[in-house]
Amino acid sequence: MSATASSPVRRDGAPPRRPAVARRAVPLLIGAGAATVIVAIIGFGVGSHPIAPAQVFEAVTAYDPTRNDHLVVIASRLPRAVLGILVGAVLGVAGALMQSLTRNPLADPGILGVNAGASLLVVVAIAYLGVTSIHGYVWFAFLGAALAAVLVFALGSAHRSGATPVRFALAGTAVAIAIGAVTQMILISNETAFQYFRFWSVGSLQGRGFDVIVAVLPFLAVGIAIALLLARPLDTLALGDATARSLGTPVGGVRIATALAVVLLSGGATAAAGPIGFIGLAGAHIARQIVGNAHRWLIPCSILVGACLLVCADALGRALVAPADLQSGIAAALLGSPLFIALVRSRRVASL
């Protein structure tokens, strides 16, 4: 067979055009990636202690621990930028997976009860075990997120006909409400727990060092790897359960693997930075509006769009209220929700 048979050319002799999805996805990947890096670098000098670009460059290239500006850049803002990129990226992926799992383009990772479960065990750790450090209750947050998601999956799969997107959504909502009630009951009766929990519950990238990043990184890496491996099965599952089974796709196994990836991604992000809303919902939705439902493009685009959204929200939040420091979860909601509302109103919501 000739080379032209496997690599067809157009009639005018020009090389074949890239598929329409690729022509939309590649600019999105490049633009979101570049914006993330640029805003993260600008963010090194923004905040309660403004630092000139020259001093930021000097801190990165010739770090001197005896200089206060260098300490702020390297010990505080560099880990904050890295964590923002990481958390935004995995929340974007988790949102895309959650939307595909529930067949709802406006679904959020919190629908699996991740935030509720994490919050409950953080409160329990603070109120009854005396844990008051982020490095201590990060593990309780992750464990709570995982247990809540397992409970939701068990309830959603309890019917003899098996799990369905609607059952997942209903089970997640019921579990989140029940866990939220228990959490509030503990907080009302324990002032110490309330004081510590209120800072974690709004979601923040501040005060987290590289040790927190290293602690959750293995779970996030495994979650992203699972998500990438699920790209083709999720495309098949979107055709319907019957069609997917006829094509040899293990429907139940794909749903379990997707739920596991969401737990690892959302649970790890929530454990490290607290419950940050909007990013998983909007990041995946924006990517889906541009590249469609093909997961081999949707997942990478959700990674970069999610990272870009959180880094931009964090930097803008610090700049707008300087010299104060706006918590990242609040900034993401206040600065991002108008953009999301505009997208929903101006475009047709993608169907799944």
Rank of each mutant, 00 (worst) to 15 (best):
M1N: 12
M1R: 13
M1F: 12
S2K: 09
S2I: 07
V9P: 02
D12Y: 14
G13H: 13
V26N: 11
I38Q: 15
I42L: 14
G43N: 03
G45A: 04
G45D: 03
A52S: 11
P53Y: 02
A54N: 06
Q55N: 07
F57R: 04
Y63N: 09
D64S: 13
L71P: 06
A75Q: 15
R77G: 07
R80S: 08
A81T: 05
G95Y: 01
Q99T: 07
S100I: 02
P105Q: 10
V114M: 05
V114T: 04
V114D: 00
L120S: 01
V124S: 05
L129H: 12
G136P: 07
F142G: 01
L143M: 10
A145H: 02
A145F: 00
A149P: 00
S157M: 11
G162Q: 14
P165F: 08
A171T: 11
T173C: 10
I179S: 03
G180K: 07
A181T: 06
A181W: 05
T183I: 01
L187D: 03
S189K: 14
N190H: 10
E191M: 11
A193I: 01
F199E: 13
Q206K: 04
G207S: 15
V214A: 14
V214H: 11
A221W: 11
I224M: 15
I226P: 13
A231T: 09
P233C: 10
P233T: 06
D235G: 08
T236G: 04
A238M: 07
G240E: 07
D241F: 00
T243M: 00
L247P: 05
G248V: 10
P250Q: 14
G252P: 09
G253T: 09
V254P: 00
V254N: 02
A257S: 15
T258Y: 04
G267D: 01
G267F: 01
A271V: 01
I276W: 02
F278G: 06
F278H: 09
I279K: 04
R288F: 06
H295N: 12
I303E: 01
G306N: 05
L309V: 08
L309N: 07
R318E: 09
Q327F: 04
A331I: 04
L339R: 08
F340S: 09
A342W: 15
L343M: 13
R347M: 11
